[in-house]
Design a protein around this nucleic acid. Structure first.
Lengths: 136, 136
DNA sequence: GTGGCTGCAAAATGTTTGCACGGAT
DNA sequence: ATCCGTGCAAACATTTTGCAGCCAC
């Protein structure tokens, strides 16, 4: 159950922090491979996954796409652009406890947490879509 | 842009309604193949997807797992068992409009909707886990 | 020295796609 | 007669796994 301190782990965690904005495992790999040319994708996947399990990172699961990883641990939410896949933070002080309490009252499940992902269009894709609509 | 009325489409939609509780594409395929032994998985995937796009069904995206399809169109939410993958409804009158309005105020994205999935343990898995903890 | 960690390749999973044919309109 | 929808197989994207050797402890 002990955890060894390898160069790969250090470099992967550093990469997520440097990339800052919700990189996918592939993006982390591309960053890390600059420093460690022989690293394997399997190592990146394995470590991101175990760091997420241990709470060093948050995993943002995107159905039908690659998972993203977030080095920001404070409770917040995300918007996903339905056009280009851009992922951004949303900070709501919407009380987490309330949704959890409410859900637990309404369900026989023992609910521990939840994932709230908003879907919409980023400003860039919205502008393009609006311009297209103008043409007819 | 027209939509032809094939036996496959009818049977697929009927299967989702009969299975009732959030079947995956694979589960729909297994049900449909009883009636149409020659149907292809591709047809099931294609039709479930297009029906979801046209609003005849709801798609519940589960990161790292198969998407589920829901024949219930009224706004509600879902709990996913972290142990066995069971998926169940949660009905909250938590006003949809409020979360959308709030999120749009806080973000530069043009947000149209959101997906809210709770994570926890179903009563069965909870009982097993509690029993294990009793043993120490 | 031991056993967790790594790199590699292969497998697994869920879904999409190209293409030729057949059936709904 | 059109041409959309289907079945098939292959491709695809993402992630996991088995295994032999390596290296942090």
């Amino acid at each position: 159950m002990e955890t060894r301190n390898t160069i790969q782990k250090q470099t992967i965690l550093m990469a997520v922090k440097e990339l800052a904005n919700h990189p996918t495992a592939e993006q982390v790999y591309e960053k890390v491979v600059e420093k460690l040319p022989n690293i394997s994708r399997a190592t990146v996947y394995r470590n991101l996954s175990s760091m997420a399990d241990r709470g060093l990172l948050h995993r943002i699961g995107v159905p039908g796409g690659a998972d993203h990883y977030d080095h920001t641990l404070e409770t917040h939410y995300h918007v996903l652009c339905t056009e280009c896949g851009a992922l951004e933070d949303i900070w709501l002080q919407e009380s987490q406890a309330d949704l959890l309490k409410l859900a637990n009252e309404k369900s026989s499940f023992s609910i521990q947490n939840y994932q709230l992902v908003f879907h919409g269009m980023c400003p860039c894709c919205k502008a393009k879509a609006d311009a297209l609509n103008q043409l007819h």
